[in-house]
Design a protein around this nucleic acid. Structure first.
Lengths: 150, 150
DNA sequence: TGCAAATGGTTACATATGAAACTATAAAGA
DNA sequence: TCTTTATAGTTTCATATGTAACCATTTGCA
């Protein structure tokens, strides 16, 4: 009779990818969660605003692969702690432009090097050739996410 | 003055890895969630039992990178639906051996090909050389997860 | 033996998350 | 201009999840 189908997790790509990504993410997030009491979503919002000041919540959602509810909540929490400011848009009063405050920027500037250091540690385990292929593969497998107007 | 630090998500490895893994996982899970009303954790438990009948909850937790509470809940839900059975262990009455029931196996056998097909679709986008490097990198980056007694 | 410490598994509680409904405003069309 | 439709963002509700406390049993060792 036919052998019953079975799935070997150790060889199943989606699973291995998922475990790897979660491990790496958590290594980083556990650090800023503890030190600055920021959730992953909150940090993502801060990071994107640190680079692109004045985006709206909608823009942030698109750029971070988060849904708008998650962004709304993260922004509310950050505004509460005065880590970012909301400015109602002149031309469309439904939307607000978001910017890090001085104290938001201060925290941001501490987390960025920390995140980059984690990335460096990860890459250090690889040879130059392996690093090259990793970047290449991430490009090739990049999900079809709409990145509107750069 | 020094330029302010900033993190470019598009180039930040942990982020890209995370988005990719989540997209891939969700592609698959959305299908069996809808068709069989199974959560990701439930499916993971079923998959591991489909391959290794008789494991205890503890074994399952170790092999699936899930914590014991998640396993306990998944198992409870599956037992409720009679997709798996629990048999108290002879030699240690705290633990129970888990096995798919006939109907659990039937569902399992439908999902496995579906999962493998998704994996195939993903790999089809890559050349043989790229596939090789992907597997290699996943090995090299494999998180230090304890896999006790095979 | 008998008792403290460890372990498998569950439960309780508090928090996070997602889907859908909702509010306010803007855009499109009659 | 009036009315419908779409959009930005928030709130609500139901569910998922993690942490810590817990129960039952077993192990280690006095």
């Amino acid at each position: 009779m036919p052998k019953p189908p079975a799935l070997d997790f150790d060889a199943f790509l989606p699973y291995r990818l998922s475990v790897l990504a979660n491990t790496v993410s958590q290594d980083i997030s556990s650090e800023y969660e503890e030190r600055f009491n920021l959730s992953v979503t909150q940090w993502r919002v801060m990071a994107i605003l640190g680079r692109h000041a004045g985006l709206t919540a909608r823009d942030v959602a698109m750029r971070t692969a988060m849904d708008k509810v998650a962004v709304s909540r993260a922004v509310a929490g950050l505004a509460e702690r005065k880590l970012l400011s909301r400015t109602i848009s002149e031309r469309d009063r439904r939307e607000a432009h978001l910017r890090l405050t001085r104290s938001g920027r201060a925290i941001h500037d501490q987390i960025v090097p920390l995140a980059l250091e984690h990335e460096r540690r990860l890459l250090k385990r690889l040879t130059a050739e392996e690093r090259h292929w990793l970047a290449h593969l991430l490009d090739r497998l990049r999900p079809a996410i709409a990145l509107p107007e750069a």
